[in-house]
Design a protein around this nucleic acid. Sequence first.
DNA 1: ATGCCTCAGCTCCTGAGA
Length: 257
Amino acid sequence: MKLATWNVNSLGVRLPQVLDWLAANPVDVLALQELKLTDDKFPADAFETIGYHAQWFGQKTYNGVALLTRAPASDVIKNIPGFDDDMSRVITGTVEGVRVIGAYFPNGQEPGSDKFEYKMEWLTALRRWVKEELSVHPKLVLMGDYNITFDEDDVWDPVNLEGTIHCTEEERYHLRALIALGLHDSYRLFAYPPKSYSWWDYRDAGFRRNRGMRIDHILVSETLRPSVIACTIDKTPRKNERPSDHAPVIVDISLSA
DNA sequence: ATGCCTCAGCTCCTGAGA
């Protein structure tokens, strides 16, 4: 079973690239973030035509998430139960026995800001809920745009960016706390090349100079961890014209055993 | 040098992203 996550930064703009990518990478599940469109504008027909079911949770201008799946998803939940939120950031479903959570974590803008405070509250709520989900669904995948780096290996300039957004101790505390629930970073289960990133700033030729961060993650539960075969970042679509600023991350899990 | 791209929107600028 292959699962992938991709922040597309406007599905309206990126739809042709998503269709092309799925044709070349026929994964079983693709979680999308930053749709930036309302539910009525979601191109469900285009995905159905190429053999994908879709569940989506849109929002005007900002946010918006979706799950594209080869097999239908069941028990779908939108956002974090018990956490009142007017932003569309999380969509969850069960696909072939695996509980899949696709999430667009808050950006946080700047430490000390209201948006940073919201990010902390959201992270606390997410962790409480993921803990509950794990107790019911031992086979669980939590993937998406986390907007948090684990450590300096995930940052192109860790010295100058220390303590800035995505690189603060407060954010990393929450990321480690998710790991402490019994989740594993798929990417770090294997040897990885240095300077591996999933996002590059549009400005200042960030991609060409590989000035990026690894902020898109696929976490798998303890039960799934032994079955993970590979996890990769696909930089190919970042080389497209009008690319998203994020690259897809893909995990391959052997579910036959 | 995060005014340096890119996208959405009551669109020719502003807010937000990360």
